[in-house]
């Protein structure tokens, strides 16, 4: 008697296995959550705006204080078409760029020195702890009194106030100094944290395997501290931005989103009241775009090293 073997199914050649999976279905399965969240966002914002519009239409939210979203968007479109709003956006952004790069450079320098030398750390640590709760705008009166609101170099006749770089906010030292002061503390604090949490065993392991200092810095210390650095830069940028906008409320700078909003507040006509809403709308859009850019940067720098898990895993 011979034992009959069951027929062996050959894999990879049957009709079921050769047929390709439906790409659209796969895509849907893969990104269902993200797509649905976008849909819900649009629905929620649409609902909010339409309720607001209706309340405005039936005079529940009355005109001198509240305006319908359609009116605000129309005015935004007018200002965009005439290009008037862009000069304010770009001058605020230019101030942000300069002051934040100064904050990043000095913050990095101080933070690294604090990590390297104990004396520097002992000196700066209490100062940073003390000065962190001060809002950036509290420094504004001091800088106004000390530096003055007149443009940089103007007293030596180097520029006139109609030149392009004065228009783009580069000539206003007060705003840049205050933005730098506001942005520097989170950077220092986070670099400190990075230095404190650096795992010594990893460094020792690299050293026993004969790595050079340069190699250790590039392959161990930098990837280890990159998330902290990024958090510090993100917080510092946000604080610089807030402080610059708030200081533009107070200062006599002729450009900038904060100036645009507060200047329109002082003239009490219908159009200027709409302009306040337009300014705040543009403000939130600009910062939202900056945040999106930061997220992209985070993805291409930090997730490359595998230091932060990729998003989309929450609940």
């Amino acid at each position: 008697m011979t034992v009959q073997k069951p027929p062996v199914k050959e894999e990879g050649l049957t009709e079921e296995n050769t047929s390709r999976p439906n790409r659209f279905l796969l895509f849907w399965e893969y990104s269902k959550k993200d797509l649905m969240s976008v849909v819900y966002t649009i629905l929620a914002v649409g609902l909010f705006l339409s309720i607001w519009e209706l309340l405005g239409y039936y005079n529940v939210l009355k005109e001198p204080q509240f305006f319908r979203p359609s009116v605000i968007f129309a005015q935004t479109w007018v200002l965009t078409k005439s290009g008037e709003i862009f000069i304010h956006i770009f001058s605020s952004l230019a101030r942000l760029l300069i002051s934040f790069s100064l904050a990043a450079i000095f913050g990095l320098l101080i933070g690294l020195l604090m990590g390297r030398y104990k004396a520097v750390k002992a000196f700066f640590d209490p100062l940073v702890t003390f000065f962190i709760p001060i809002p950036g705008i509290a420094w504004a009166p001091l800088i106004f009194v000390w530096v003055g609101v007149e443009p940089l170099f103007s007293r030596w006749g180097l520029i006139d106030s109609t030149s392009w770089w004065w228009k783009f906010g580069l000539g206003n030292p007060v705003l840049i100094i205050i933005g730098t002061i506001a942005g520097i503390f989170p950077v220092i604090q986070n670099i400190n944290m990075a230095v404190r949490t650096a795992d010594k065993k990893l460094i020792w392991a690299a050293q026993t395997m004969g790595a050079s200092n340069n190699y250790i810095f590039r392959k161990v210390l930098l990837p280890n501290s990159l998330p902290f650095l990024f958090t510090g830069f993100k917080l510092g940028l946000a604080r610089s931005w807030r402080t610059i906008i708030a200081t533009e409320f107070l200062s006599a700078a002729m450009e900038g989103l904060g100036y645009f909003i507060f200047f329109n507040r002082t003239l009490e006509t219908r159009l200027t009241r709409i302009n306040i809403y337009v300014g705040i709308f543009v403000l939130s859009v600009v910062f939202y775009v900056i945040e999106l850019g930061l997220k992209y940067l985070e993805r291409i720098t930090i997730e490359k090293y595998g230091m932060v898990r990729k998003g989309g895993e929450s609940l």
Binding site: P64, A246, Y277, G279, I280, S284
Partner: peptide, 17 residues
Amino acid sequence: LMISIPTLAWVPILLTI
């Protein structure tokens, strides 16, 4: 969306109200 507006930017609107 609202969290990306600086807190002090609400002040002009609140002042008009």
